[in-house]
Design a protein around this nucleic acid. Structure first.
Lengths: 342, 342
DNA sequence: TTGAAAGCGCTAACAA
DNA sequence: TTGTTAGCGCTTTCAA
């Protein structure tokens, strides 16, 4: 089998020679076109087009100490759940970042905390990326703290919660507002006994989402006692929790911290011959593909991940600007995708 | 707000000075440790550890003309479908590539063909990536042809189909074998009138999958006449196609080219009060999260995407080796995830 | 407005 | 086995 070696791409010097100018003039034509006389610029531009020149990234990176690469830790997919918000976010992020001249570098790390830190460290020390996007800022996660100590530029998708020392830019979605929205929607439809199925108490995100439910319920002077359950984020947990709640608290609707849990509720309803949306209403969280394609459609809180990506990139541009600007935290409000189950 | 500037990371020269050797010796300690005397190596290694040294990527890339970055075009997520194979593949790919010393660089391009090519071109000319992974090799897609002409190293996830001029490495999943597996599974359970719902005729992947169904049916001397439908890859198309087939061909089972189409079939069954798995069996393709979490669980063909990632990276390593080796195409066999619907 | 010189940090080739 | 020299392609001074 014949192997064809790639031809070496043209360099700045090639363009300079062709245009009859010095290399610096070509460099200026690219980076500071205002400095050139119009006709020189035209001539250089023609040479660039004719040769199909594009600046060598490695050389430029070496000189400017910037890679225009943003690192993002990509964790394994969660099979057996409806969770895919991360993937949806990455899709939006790649597009938005591309528009701002950045590419996304995906990296995997081991499960342990120190392995994760080593992953970040390697990329940082080798100046492979200009900044990171960090997506799991739950309490006790050492990444944010560690990155700050390392003086590594990063933007978090997720609030710093109760970390007062945090001074990094972040973007988050107001989970409480989303669940409030969902609960209020059910209240407006006449439900009064609305149950909550969420995650265990150590999840700040879970507690935040839960607070939207209590807020909406108490706003209507309704009790939440006995109507809540905290469990693992799996379909079977949602199934079990909803079965218990149905027996012990007779709710007419369920609001869940995830579509995964909501699927568990739908399983229980099916087990008992109850019609979702008719007999019992169900609302999930994340507007996953699952929520979108099942029948009856699952009403679900939708995170504005496209907007999150836009804000994250905006914050990144501030951080990497001269001088760097740490933009304030941004909290975005989710919407409710209303379908048949609620 | 106080901005702390990152301190400049240590360089080769810093390590050399600390270890009392030349820079070249440090370089050798990292890239050719065999060349060093044991005690020198130890000394250099200590200096590296003490300083937390990691080679500057830009400098190394410039010198070695390699970035250890693999480009992958990341298209927008398909909402409203059950399709997420690409995402699952990327998860596996990031892990596998990381193990081989490569990072994945995601980039977005516009919808038009020429915009896509420009996306590849920019990355290529600026030597930003060492190679590409191309995932949509359907007939008429100019990417593969164009990359070949450009002499750009790339590995395709997907066969070159009838492109005889193709001489690039590729990895693919045997869709026909997967559908044959699914159909045979239904045949073994006593079904004889098994319908097919697939994509339009211009989809090579769709036609390949379809051939698995005809092969399995004809293998049992069963007719396929009137039992097939070709349509768009949407839930509603699957719903309509299955309604027509049910009326006109009375099948006892459906095999579908995607989980998305299979969801459409489930909608039709629900409309008609038929129990999936009891009255009518349904098998999908891709083993999506949807297939995994719905009740009853959707039996589905599962692509071995982890293996695909392994083979793709293997091919990549060959391509980027010295000398480059173009590995032969690899065809992997899917498995069947059996659940309640079939 | 353009050009010359220097050097980013690294490794390949060669010399000692 | 280790060190010296040179240069990858670019941009940042600074000088013309």
């Amino acid at each position: 089998m014949t192997i064809r070696y790639p031809v070496a791409p043209p360099t700045l010097a090639d363009v300079a020679e062709r245009a009859g100018v010095s290399r610096q003039t070509v460099s200026n034509a690219i980076n500071n076109p205002d400095l050139l006389r119009a006709d020189t610029l035209t001539r250089v531009q023609e040479a660039i087009d004719e040769l199909g020149y594009s600046p060598n990234r490695a050389a430029r990176n070496l000189r400017t100490r910037a890679s225009h690469l943003i690192g993002l830790k990509f964790s394994p997919a969660q099979e057996g759940t409806a969770n895919a918000a991360m993937d949806r976010f990455v899709h939006s992020l790649v597009e938005t970042a591309g528009g701002a001249g950045y590419h996304i570098l995906l990296f995997a790390v081991g499960e342990e905390d120190d392995e994760a830190l080593r992953g970040y460290d390697d990329l940082l020390r080798s100046t492979a990326v200009d900044a990171f996007i960090v997506t799991d800022t739950y309490l006790g996660n050492p990444q944010a703290t560690w990155l700050r100590q390392r003086r590594a530029p990063f933007v978090a998708f997720g609030r710093p919660w109760d970390d007062d020392a945090a001074d990094h830019p972040w973007v988050d979605v107001d989970g409480a507002a989303g669940v409030d929205l969902a609960t209020t929607h059910l209240l407006d439809r006449g439900h009064e006994r609305i149950a909550w199925i969420g995650w265990r108490k150590d999840s700040r995100i879970g507690e935040d989402r839960r607070s939207g439910w209590t807020r909406a319920m108490h706003g209507r002077h309704l009790s939440t006692t006995g109507l809540a359950s905290r469990t693992e984020d799996t379909v079977s947990s949602g199934r079990e929790a909803s079965a218990v709640l149905l027996d012990e608290a007779s709710p007419s609707a369920f609001v869940c911290a995830s579509d995964t849990l909501a699927m568990g509720v739908l399983h229980t309803l099916r087990d008992r011959g109850l019609q979702p949306g008719q007999d019992i209403s169900v609302v999930g969280f994340d507007d996953s593909q699952v929520a979108q394609v099942i029948q009856p459609g699952l009403t679900s809180v939708r995170q504005p991940l496209e907007e999150v990506a836009v804000e994250v990139v905006r914050a990144l541009e501030g951080l990497l600007g001269h001088p760097p600007v740490v933009s304030p935290g941004v909290l975005l409000t989710p919407t409710l995708a209303v379908r048949e189950t609620g």
